[in-house]
Design a binder for these strands. Structure first.
Lengths: 176, 176
DNA sequence: TATTGTTATACTCTATAACTATA
DNA sequence: TATAGTTATAGAGTATAACAATA
């Protein structure tokens, strides 16, 4: 039998201090990401796949190396990711006439349809996340977060992954 | 020699749609988390340690099981985390008179000093993250995010970890 | 019989180094 | 000699099952 001696009074904990705000940002952000990750599973994709598809969709004819630099991923890990997307028939490695070492990454037709579907899914997801906010509030939130993002030098469209804690590589990234 | 044929025009990408907002939230949130994680390394801690210390600090005399439920962690993984904190002399496993199977987790004096230091660090961190916002904007942002957080049913003070994608357990969590 | 903390282990993901084929 | 992609593998982190002590 659990005692459950309903412990200790709770100190206040979101007093509106900068620290609490930073935590709140991380908390809501993480929730948004996890929630989206779940929505994408029925399509047979993981979050990482989505990032790659989006990047290929936006910047056409990227090389694997360029894609890795842009997303801050290791080329070695990108290989399997692209392999998987290729096996699903979403991405194609096109041969490069001018440099036979490298491939250019292309979306197949199926890949383009998938990307469209992902965009729709993203909108639906965003709508649920922001359900508590009216249109004006959403615009305000967007502007506030954009200010932070540019202030912090974040690459638009690139989601920094967590384990990058160790040694995130210098990113000669191009802008997406 | 890299060709670097500065590829393809860039479609617009933060048009302010709900999907873009959800992405922006996740992006800024992830950045905040990574950045804080780096700041905590010099103290010899990882992000997970901080979460545990905070939780023990807030709710006194928790049991490992209770802590695990609250944070949504597996008891097995909590063991090593507590081991590490105990080895650093920050946490102590106190014996429980009424149930000799379980321990109650306590902060040592050193652990309390560390927690104070962490709180100061958190404030400094938040201040840097929000550097681009004036006090009024910070209050606005806090309120907007709080609306989302409560709307989404987020546990105050509990940061959902990413890999929970798989099968996050039903949390009989108590409130922190 | 059920529960707390633990151990051992499988699985996934990230990071590093070495190899090949081109340049 | 350097670079693109690949392979193999080390290293974290997360999840699951089984066990000893206690209830």
């Amino acid at each position: 039998m659990t005692k459950n001696k309903l412990a200790a009074p709770l100190p206040d904990q979101d007093s509106g201090s900068p620290g609490d705000l930073a935590f709140l940002i991380a908390q809501v952000g993480s929730h948004s990401q996890i929630s989206f990750g779940k929505r994408v599973v029925p399509l047979g994709l993981r979050l990482a796949h989505v990032g790659v598809l989006k990047a290929i969709f936006r910047t056409n004819r990227l090389t694997q190396r360029e894609l890795g630099d842009t997303l801050g991923m290791f080329p070695s890990n990108l290989v399997r990711l692209i392999d998987e997307l290729e096996q699903k028939g979403l991405v194609r490695r096109g041969h490069n006439a001018s440099d036979r070492r490298s491939y250019t990454l292309l979306l197949t037709n199926k890949g383009q349809r998938m990307t469209s579907e992902l965009i729709a899914l993203t909108e639906a997801h965003g709508d649920r996340i922001c359900a508590a906010l009216n249109p004006l509030e959403r615009r305000e939130l967007t502007q506030l977060l954009r200010k932070i993002a540019t202030g912090q030098g974040l690459q638009p469209g690139v989601h920094p992954e967590l384990p990058g804690l160790k040694s995130r590589r210098a990113t000669k990234a191009r802008t997406l």
